[in-house]
Structure formats: C-alpha cells, structure tokens
Amino acid sequence: MNDFLLIFGWVGLYAPMALGAVGSIMGCAVAGQAAIGAMLDTDSGYGRYVGVSAMPSSQVIYGIVVMFTLNRPVTLEVAPGLFGIGVLSGLALMFSAIYQGQCCASAIQASKAKPEIFGLSVAPAAIVEGFAVFAFIFALVISTNIPQG
C-alpha cells in the first residue's frame, strides 16, 4: 500500500508536465494543420496563422513550472498532495490546450475569410488560456501547503 502511495506521488509530480505536453501536442497539431490548410487558400498572412497555431504551447510551460514547484522528496506524507494537485492541474492544462487548439483553428479559418476580424477571432482562444492560467496559478498557491518532505 505504501509503495502504491509513493507511486501516486511520483505520478502527481510528473503529471502537470506530461499532461500539459499531451494537450499542447494535440492543440498545436490541430491549429497547425488548420494554419497549413489556410495557407493553401490565401496569398498572405501566413505568419499570423503560424503564430496563432502556437498558442496552445503555453500549457506545457505552465506544466513544467508546476512540476518544479511540486518537486521535493516523495514521502508517504506528501504523496497524496502531490498526486491530487499534480494530476488535477495536469488535466486542466491538457484539456485547455486541446480546446484552445480548436479555438485557434476556428480563428485561423475565420480570419482567412475575413482578415479584419483576426484580433477578435483570437479572443476565445485567449479566454481559454485564462482558465489554464487559473489552474496554473492556484496549483502554485496550493502547493505551498504541501510539506517540503
């Protein structure tokens, strides 16, 4: 049982980074391919498409920071806290990156047809980013309650 708890602790420690990376991979892939598709149908604005498609990459950076913040010797005392904060913040980062990727893909498609709405079309993706920032900040705040081991 104790070994399981320690395993969960290690899972929680690495989860924000791993789940954030999975989300960023999926989000950037969807938005990136939408950017490539838009390039096939337009003669300009390629740079902005690629720039928008990179937006979901921020979640993996948040995940790395949370991982380093949680990083401490994994003991029976800290393992449940590491698991709870790590996995839940990781899941939040992962889903926000996936759905942000879809928002970015939609923004790319919309701004391809109407370049004048580019700024506004990115707003939904920025709102999703805001939720990722919430998950990130409060993971940092609450992790201070876990003993240093």
Binding site: A31, Q33, A34, I36, D41
Partner: peptide, 9 residues
C-alpha cells in the same frame, strides 16, 4: 482541420 481550413467558406 487542414482540409476544412483550406476550403473557402
């Protein structure tokens, strides 16, 4: 995503 984005609306 790539296919849909490449099509004119």
């Amino acid at each position: 995503a790539m296919l849909i984005a490449s099509l004119p609306p």
